[in-house]
Design a binder for these strands. Sequence first.
DNA 1: GGCAGACACGAGAGATCGCTCGCATTTCTG
DNA 2: CAGAAATGCGAGCGATCTCTCGTGTCTGCC
Lengths: 226, 226
Amino acid sequence: MPEKTEKPGTAKPGAETTTATEDRPRRRQARGERRIAQLLDAAATVFSTTGYTAASTNAIAREAGVSPGTLYQFFPNKEAIAIELGSRLMHEMRQSYDEALTPIDPGATPIEDVIAGTVDRFIEFNCRHPAFFALMHGPDIPGRIAEEHDALHRTLTARVEALLAPFTPGTPAPTLARTAQMCVGIYKAGLELVLAHEGAEREAYVQELKVTLLRYLSPLVGDVVK
Amino acid sequence: MPEKTEKPGTAKPGAETTTATEDRPRRRQARGERRIAQLLDAAATVFSTTGYTAASTNAIAREAGVSPGTLYQFFPNKEAIAIELGSRLMHEMRQSYDEALTPIDPGATPIEDVIAGTVDRFIEFNCRHPAFFALMHGPDIPGRIAEEHDALHRTLTARVEALLAPFTPGTPAPTLARTAQMCVGIYKAGLELVLAHEGAEREAYVQELKVTLLRYLSPLVGDVVK
DNA sequence: GGCAGACACGAGAGATCGCTCGCATTTCTG
DNA sequence: CAGAAATGCGAGCGATCTCTCGTGTCTGCC
């Protein structure tokens, strides 16, 4: 297939795969760090409104108030911008959900509270960073970001599995895996509905999402639907 | 915003908004109809593998085994191809789900069977036409297709509402609307999981989707989770 | 047979986009 | 202060994409 996404430029200079970290001869100044943050903010805005492929690097630079050349002083290519942005968001999210999921080891907390707490955390994060959803959901993103997305998805389902395991003593592993996948899928569907609404209606959908997860998982905990 | 998706060509000749139907001076021959079907098939393949924006009209023409010029003999632009394809798929789907949903008027059939029947129909359709999902789910599609998508989504949720109404006597309208939205969302999430797997695993996810919907809706019918 | 028009081709016009390059300016270091 | 390096600019290269146009072939109708 000779018409796929080839490197459009004339030549790849050094083929360095490190995103934007210091290799060796790169001593970033404070101004540079500020520009990077500025550019990533702009990229988040543009990505979340137009998607990855439709977003042009010129548009990102303009949104950040700098020239295209300046943008390429800090990022080797367009993909690296998305990678770095995704990586930073993922890092922040990991912090957020580590807080939310680690102290559930004892079986003391009822599953309602586990669901409610987790959902609240994730919803809040995604509302604050709409670019995250756009980046992790676009079917148009090239290889590298898709890999990060897969990695995130795997760790996410693994965490859900671990969270569910103490509640389900006798379930075989493949069934548990499917249950976790389904939970993540339900969460994504709910998130889409939540993001599509505002104010009280949004709250109502958050509640509906919690109810959905609770009802889906209630047989595992031997509960009865109210 | 001067850098948005402008018409790339030199000038829009007549600004005719009719997709590909006969206006007046267009007497299609049998060969032409065959070419159109051929091109739409090719477009379905390309769209479902690369998405809408990444799909090039040249690639569609090549997939169909014709020249780019021939493609533009039958479609005024790239968007029209997607519009026509989406419209044909939507028509076929409407037939399929009219069959599935109309004879449920009596409250005699239990909700399990309603869910199972509907899910089976939709899943079967979407497995047969993977382009439909790609077209209706891409965040990159331009205005017109998004409108069609919204229209489909509205009629779909309306049908689900109508389907749910006899089972829920005392529910207020906004709540019912949210429930229908959630059902469609759950279905979409399940569909994604189903399409991502093969064979027995796929069947297992179909079953899981049915179970999810049943558990979500079970309170409405006064049932108890098994 | 002959003509009108549908069908087919493929080079390329026009436009956008990712990215580069030469050069100017600012900041850091000694 | 002087040199080096980081930062900043913006015109523009090369690639690609959508869509057009001139030209030629095929089909249906008298």
